[in-house]
Amino acid sequence: MTVTPTNPPPPLPPWRRAQRDHFPGVPAWGLATRRASPEPFEISRLETVNKEWAYGGADGTGVRVCVLDTGVQADHPQVGGLEASYQVVVDDGGKLSVAECEPHDPAGHGTACASVIRQVAPGSSISSLRVLTDGKNGSGDALLTGLRWAIEAGFDVINMSLSTTKSDFRHTLQELADRAYFRRCLLVAAAHNMPVLSFPWTFSSVVSVASHDQADPMTYFYNPSPPAEFHARGVKVPVAWAGGKVVRSTGNSFAAPHIAGICALILSKHPWLTPFQLKTVLYLAADNTADNITQNGEPDVH
């Protein structure tokens, strides 16, 4: 009996690999491009869509972005004004609702995120919704109340550089993410910087963002091995800080608003894109899927 030599099976593509270990204690989602290039993978191109088609000449005008965070200091030069400022408030009976408020930010984090969006999409209209108020329990309820309100309020893009680890909130957040998706309200969420299970960035309808370590605010990569679906600038990002200053900050919190800004650019040029079309355009215009693929910032020459 002869044994027919068989070819070894082709290697599995990144998205078909066994699920990574994902528990507290293993590394999270960073892409250190100085040590390893973004992983190559097969691509089905829609030839006409590239960065130029996606947002060439656009500045975000007409697109309404909501920053769900610690509040935003509107008069910071790097923020350049807000459309409106809201916060989640509690009435005497403990019921949560959303009310207009002064545009302030005691922690500085929301201001930092807003400044990144302003840098990428200077023409967009930015609003602030303060949902992180203090370190006490129950801030997850404020997040749900705020997110529900923002989805109904008709924002085109909601930036969420935050997540909750509380599994009690998962079901409601999932419903809200679906609601947002069907209302054409794109949720852009920071992947958790730590290897813990948290939401809503892990949902498929959400655009989730981790950090790469390159300095260009417009460079971003598609990650063929999600759940963190995109890598945007998140290392030493110059962001607005208290007292009208600029500080260099690192974290996925600052990567997400880059993608939120890029989405605002795309929507200002192509206002009728649905969230899944928008995600496809993001994918096609990424630096590792576009016509001139760049790896480590260098054009890939075949």
């Binding site: 935050l162 997540s163 680890t165 260099r248 974290g251 919190s253």
Partner: peptide
């Protein structure tokens, strides 16, 4: 409040 690590320079 956020449960996210971060680095701030300068």
């Amino acid at each position: 409040t956020s449960g996210q690590p971060m680095v701030a320079d300068d």
